[in-house]
Design a protein around this nucleic acid. Sequence first.
DNA 1: CGCCGTCTTGAGTGCTGTCAATAGTTGTGG
DNA 2: CCACAACTATTGACAGCACTCAAGACGGCG
Lengths: 249, 249
Amino acid sequence: MPKKTASQVCSGRSRVQHFCHACDIKRLLETNTDYDRVLSELASGLCNRGPFQPGERIYYANTSASSIYAVSSGAVKTEMPNDGGHLQVTGFYLRGDLFGEEALGESRYLHDAIALEKTWICEIPKATLIEQIQENQSMLLDLFQLLGRRTRTTGLHRINRQGQSNAERVMGFLKDFAEQSSQRFKQDNGQTQLPMNKEDIASYLAITPESLSRILKRLENAGAIRNYTHAFALIDDNGASETQCCCNG
Amino acid sequence: MPKKTASQVCSGRSRVQHFCHACDIKRLLETNTDYDRVLSELASGLCNRGPFQPGERIYYANTSASSIYAVSSGAVKTEMPNDGGHLQVTGFYLRGDLFGEEALGESRYLHDAIALEKTWICEIPKATLIEQIQENQSMLLDLFQLLGRRTRTTGLHRINRQGQSNAERVMGFLKDFAEQSSQRFKQDNGQTQLPMNKEDIASYLAITPESLSRILKRLENAGAIRNYTHAFALIDDNGASETQCCCNG
DNA sequence: CGCCGTCTTGAGTGCTGTCAATAGTTGTGG
DNA sequence: CCACAACTATTGACAGCACTCAAGACGGCG
């Protein structure tokens, strides 16, 4: 799995380019016609933070939110307590993904954000972002696009589908995640790495880990996937790639 | 149920005030320091449209999206086809609610929008909104707040909760809807009117109408609610309001 | 090599989806 | 105002699936 080793010290523009070459925030910046100037201005407010260790919290729900974030390297999950008081996972974020953006219009975060692996994040103060938007109209359009993209890819309609069995919901999640992951990482063996554990996935899909385990076994027996501890592989319909048996992960 | 009868002709500022006195769009405008000027400018681009009859489509998914909307009077649902090709309800919008805002960053709508009752809507062109935002920073903050508010009140975490039975999910929906409704309409008899039918609710919660019917009956037998065709009443724990038996609706 | 957490598997109960039939509601026309 | 038709909502029977509780297997880490 591609990972970056980087110095913790922030040192201007090269830092941003180093961390965020596929980052949502950088994509915002690139659309700016006066890229160099804006980047340098933003860089004065930006700060890369890390490394966060697996399980370490990046921010807590209901704490003051003055910044939004993007994943520079590693992976992040967000979770929040439901009515029963149990924490439920509400989102997974890979390299480049924006997170914490629900706090743009509020003073406090809605979720806890937790690193899934060794993770670096790119922090952008809301005040800085808003200033830049005020000066550059295309930046606002791009921000709208970023916010809408997550709604479209991981919104309610993607998880909570009528007339679909839990097996289909699991399959949908795997396909979506594989696509998200393939846009960010090379996968030469057809496998998709899972930075989170099965319990997190079950929590996200609102099913029990036992059910998830049984569903994955059923899908594997049906020849739809291969199931590993921290990875999976989608088998295409003709079962061509089923022949290659690589059991690492 | 409060309803407005209004002329269909758009005629400048008074029109906006008439329709949108509790409207998300008007709330945006009111925060503007130069209210009169911006309102008149927006009014030149705003257009109230209606009446839409029950079942009539306001816009179609994948059609060109140059405007976002708010409900002036009546009620609206959004729905979209899932993988199986069946339409699934993705949201309900009452008077004052913004909808179609997922198209802010895209050129096409994600859902179909359909009137649930006789409905008037307030249309605001995206170009006009963006121009105003560019001139007024507080308007951007308020827009963020509006966008985030829906995420917080009707997001994935409100519907798809781990460890909750479908009965609890239904109860959660009813409580949420009752709160949303009470913020907009007077309810002197403790009842909450439902502008949509049970099939729409079942679709939104991704359960079958039969299951919803059984769950509502179970909740009623347990003394938690009263169930009517186009309304319901929440019974508080001590059962005080259970005594009043009003079976209209 | 052994501990501990994660994942998987097993048995039994309850709930939900499916299919079908019945009851209730709304709107229309005579 | 009543009768009919079309739609919506409810109820019933049955099979399949998910949840609970429990135990066993696997894998990572010291």
